[in-house]
């Protein structure tokens, strides 16, 4: 087994070009510090951050589309179209913002290791989110009753698309939040397994943060 095989003879042609110049690429002389074994942000958080970047582009393009249509319109809202419910939606905005606060208290409880407070915080957050969605749905029904339809011009179409897009995101976040809350209740998640809770909280804060922008642009502007 220790027989050393002679390497096969290598045929070498005389080089037709002069000897190679020194490498012109990156020299390995400088030795930067090796990449750390544990990255500063773990994969899941980093992935979610980039996902939020993509979500931002999605919302931004809908918002820009809305603004282009909105600015081009001579009169906005168009005459003979129902007005949007400013006060109710304003209060609803406060409700959604409050859910972000309760989510913050929940994650703080997570860091403390207080499981009861965590479960309570998540539950209150989910309840506030549900209230927000319910009020939005109720207002939609009223608006449709007043005659503002998806098909009634750019006003109705942009309104329902933008608000519906956000509503779909709240619904998705609410589903995620419910799953996490159930996990915390059953003990699968908690101080020993924080990342899923923290990710859900990040997403919830993002969805909440988008809403005031939409409220100002769609309802107040």
């Amino acid at each position: 087994m220790t027989t050393v095989l002679a390497p096969p003879p290598v045929e070498r042609r005389a080089p037709r070009v002069p000897p190679l110049p020194p490498p012109l690429g990156d020299d390995d002389g400088r030795q930067p510090a090796p990449a750390p074994d544990v990255p500063p942000i773990d994969n899941a958080r980093l992935g979610l951050l980039f996902f939020l970047g993509a979500e931002t582009m999605l919302f931004a393009s809908f918002i820009v589309g809305f603004l282009i249509v909105r600015v081009a319109a001579a009169v906005w809202p168009p005459p003979l179209q129902p007005r949007l419910p400013l006060l109710v939606t304003g209060l609803n905005t406060l409700c959604l913002l409050a859910s972000s606060v309760t989510m913050r208290s929940a994650t703080r409880a997570l860091r403390r290791g207080d499981r009861a407070a965590l479960a309570r915080g998540l539950g209150v957050t989910a309840a506030l989110g549900t209230v927000f969605l319910a009020v939005q749905g109720f207002e939609w029904v009223r608006l449709i009753h007043f005659g503002l339809l998806v098909s009634s011009g750019a006003y109705g179409g942009t309104f329902y698309t933008l608000i519906g897009l956000h509503g779909a995101h709240v619904l998705g976040a609410l589903t995620w939040l419910s799953a996490v809350a159930l996990g915390v209740r059953s003990g699968r998640l908690g101080a020993h397994r924080r990342t899923p809770v923290a990710l859900c909280a990040m997403y919830w804060h993002y969805v909440v943060a988008v809403w005031p922008i939409l409220y100002v642009l769609v309802y107040l502007y």
Partner: peptide
């Protein structure tokens, strides 16, 4: 897709779209 199926007017000038 919404313009085609739901009747929104994002791109249709007839309803104020662009």
């Amino acid at each position: 897709l919404f313009d085609r199926t739901l009747g929104t007017h994002w791109f249709l000038p007839s309803g104020g779209g662009e």
